[in-house]
């Protein structure tokens, strides 16, 4: 049954969050340390730097790239990247002729072990609604203008497969180390709403 809306005089969300935490704490079901541990994991330990590490390795090690495209879950697991929302990782390469972009129109499915929690724009109704209908317009609003001859593919993550974009390595990076390359890679490029630019 769909829940009824709560009355207008309902307490604001921050107070309701405090109330829920108090009730669960009194029942011994949660404690501050446990909640803080989970929060800190996604603030400090798991985020786009994980994905950037994978991308930089794929750019510098052709055999790794092959393994990554063949079995994403196993290849990212070589770095220990695994866990919730990463049960089956599929890596899709972008290049000058093929551009892939990922969305979840039904909720906000996202490859947590590689990118952390999704950013606001990914959860925004505007992105969820429109990128499956007018992807070039949406990408342009987000700062990415694709040439007309680029083939665009939009991936709607409607099941438990999590799609991760391997961006194209930019020119002018031939002498850069793996660590330096990882610094260039953005979250947006690993979802497919941006490309990785040449270093300036």
């Amino acid at each position: 049954m769909t829940a009824k809306p709560h009355p207008d005089d309902r307490a604001p969300a921050p107070i309701r969050a405090e109330a829920l935490e108090a009730l669960l704490t009194e029942k011994g079901l949660v404690n501050a340390d446990g909640l803080n541990g989970l929060i800190n994991r996604f603030v400090n330990d798991v985020g786009p730097m994980n994905g950037a590490t994978v991308v930089a390795r794929a750019w510098t090690d052709p055999e790794y790239r092959e393994r990554l495209l063949e079995d994403g879950t196993a290849a990212v697991g070589e770095f220990g990247f695994a866990g919730p929302q990463g049960e089956h990782i599929v890596v899709v390469p972008n290049d000058a002729k093929n551009h892939n972009v990922v969305v979840c129109t039904l909720c906000s499915c996202y490859p947590w072990p590689l990118l952390g929690l999704p950013p606001d724009w990914y959860k925004d109704p505007a992105y969820r609604a429109r990128v499956v209908r007018e992807p070039r317009v949406v990408l342009s609003e987000m700062g990415l203008n694709l040439a007309e001859d680029v083939e665009v593919t939009v991936w709607d993550s409607s099941a438990e497969n999590r799609y991760f974009i391997l961006p194209e390595r930019p020119s002018g990076t031939e002498d850069m180390s793996e660590e330096e390359l990882a610094e260039l890679v953005t979250r947006e490029a690993m979802v497919g709403v941006a490309v990785v630019g040449s270093p300036t």
């Binding site: 129109t105 950013p119 109704p125 429109r130 209908r133 949406v138 709607d156």
Partner: peptide, 13 residues
């Protein structure tokens, strides 16, 4: 939400 109109533009912060 797939395909709905009316949600405005998308911006990265």
């Amino acid at each position: 939400m797939g395909g709905q109109h009316g949600w405005g533009s998308v911006a990265i912060d």
